[in-house]
């Protein structure tokens, strides 16, 4: 009789979770490799236009970003497109100072390769963009990059 009851007290063996952490670490490394750290928290809504003839932006440490778009917080800032530099709203007249600061942060040899990436929402009017381009020309930041998505622009037939 007791021969058959013997096993009742034994618990089911625990699952070995030791290798679980290895798997998660693999995930972690995968994500660390394919992603880039976000440069700034966006306060403006940006939907980039699409283009087909895109080039990859090389040497990310030599890129300064200018964001233009309608503010996300409409109640406080309205719907008129605004410029964002680093982590705050700015006006066109702040751009010269911003570029100077960006230049000062790079070493002498790299200064000439500094690129300005314009991340502009597709709804923005060219007037504002032109003002910014004029400002960049004044301070001699000639290399620019219009940030776009990859995609077709013309109607498919």
């Amino acid at each position: 009789m007791s021969r058959f009851r013997k096993n009742d007290k034994k618990e089911t063996p625990g699952i070995n979770t030791g290798s679980m952490s290895d798997i998660i670490f693999m995930f972690l490394f995968f994500f660390m490799v394919i992603t880039t750290i976000r440069e700034a928290t966006l306060f403006v809504k940006i939907v980039a236009p699409s283009a087909t003839e895109v080039q990859k932006l090389e040497r990310k440490n030599l890129v300064s970003y200018i964001y233009i778009g309608a503010p996300m917080n409409k109640a406080t800032y309205g719907t008129e497109p605004r410029i964002q530099l680093n982590d705050q709203f700015a006006t066109v007249s702040d751009i010269a100072e911003f570029i100077e600061k960006e230049r000062a942060a790079r070493n002498e040899a790299d200064k000439q390769f500094l690129t300005t990436s314009l991340k502009v929402d597709k709804e923005v009017k060219m007037g504002l963009v032109t003002d910014i381009k004029q400002e960049l020309r004044k301070v001699g930041a000639f290399k620019i990059n219009y940030s776009t998505k990859k995609g077709s622009v013309v109607d498919k037939k």
Partner: peptide, 22 residues
């Protein structure tokens, strides 16, 4: 893992490169 997922973004920077005239 969650920390890195939150602080990073996958988007690669693509765009049209232009040179402004002086």
């Amino acid at each position: 893992l969650t920390f890195f997922l939150l602080t990073s973004s996958i988007d690669t920077d693509l765009g049209l490169s232009r040179k402004l005239p002086p």
